[in-house]
């Protein structure tokens, strides 16, 4: 569990997905959740928005040329609301994305994405609007999510980005997967369980 790579910045092209309150059932339709590993989830990202009932591709940003090379997903407000299933961030990660920029993120989604080393940063509404416009105008534009500087750069635009201190520190120090830390507290776990009384101790 040791030696996770620090996540200082993510750079690449970006895709803009439309809408606010995009829930996890839309990110990965529930019928694709029947899997005992997450390996095959990439192609099922936004499936019902990308393909019609016969499986023919619709005009969706993720179906446009170059989208499969993108590293950054740009989304609206309250992205990832709904279920706590990690299938949603896993699917985004397996599809090749390594960072998200949005108006805001649902809490559970944000935590799940961070645990994959995938920063979710937020911009103010004006920043979101001009970032979206810049990427839609020029899909090949390189976008950078700079965790260290809490900044998003797109061409010559630079936007201040918000990322909580704890999350930023965890990404920079390679502690974004909490299990590394959690495993080093056996004696304290034991003591807390004993004090509570209703849990077995001596395990």
């Amino acid at each position: 569990m040791n030696g996770l790579p620090p996540v200082r910045s993510v750079r690449g092209t970006a895709v803009v997905v439309p809408g606010n309150d995009v829930d996890t059932d839309r990110i990965v339709p529930a019928r694709y959740l029947k899997c005992v590993t997450f390996d095959a989830l990439g192609p099922q990202l936004f499936y019902d928005e990308r393909y019609d009932e016969n499986g023919a591709p619709k005009d969706h940003p993720l179906n446009r040329p170059g989208a499969d090379e993108a590293k950054i997903l740009i989304c609206g407000a309250n992205f990832g609301c709904g279920s706590s299933r990690e299938h949603a961030p896993q699917s985004i990660h397996k599809a090749g994305f390594r960072a998200l920029i949005g108006g805001s993120f649902a809490e559970i989604f944000f935590g799940n994405a961070t645990t994959l080393g995938m920063p979710c940063v937020t911009l103010d509404p004006e920043g979101m609007a001009s970032l979206r416009a810049a990427v839609q105008r020029e899909p090949e534009l390189e976008v950078e999510v700079n965790v260290e500087a809490r900044q998003v750069r797109a061409g010559e635009h630079v936007f201040p980005a918000h990322l909580p201190d704890g999350t930023r520190g965890a990404l920079l120090e390679g502690r974004w997967d909490a299990l590394t830390d959690l495993l080093t507290a056996d004696a304290e776990i034991e003591a807390t369980a004993r004090r509570l009384g209703y849990l077995p101790s001596g395990a």
């Binding site: 706590s84 704890g166 502690r175 959690l182 304290e188 807390t192 509570l196």
Partner: peptide
């Protein structure tokens, strides 16, 4: 407070869990 094991460097709390319920969809992975 009763379930807090310790504070972590990330600013989060390591919290002890009394009951962990699992089901078939989110546990195999």
């Amino acid at each position: 407070d009763a379930h807090a094991v310790r504070d972590l460097d990330s600013g989060a709390t390591q919290l002890l869990i009394g009951a962990h319920m699992i089901h078939e969809v989110t546990s195999p992975q």
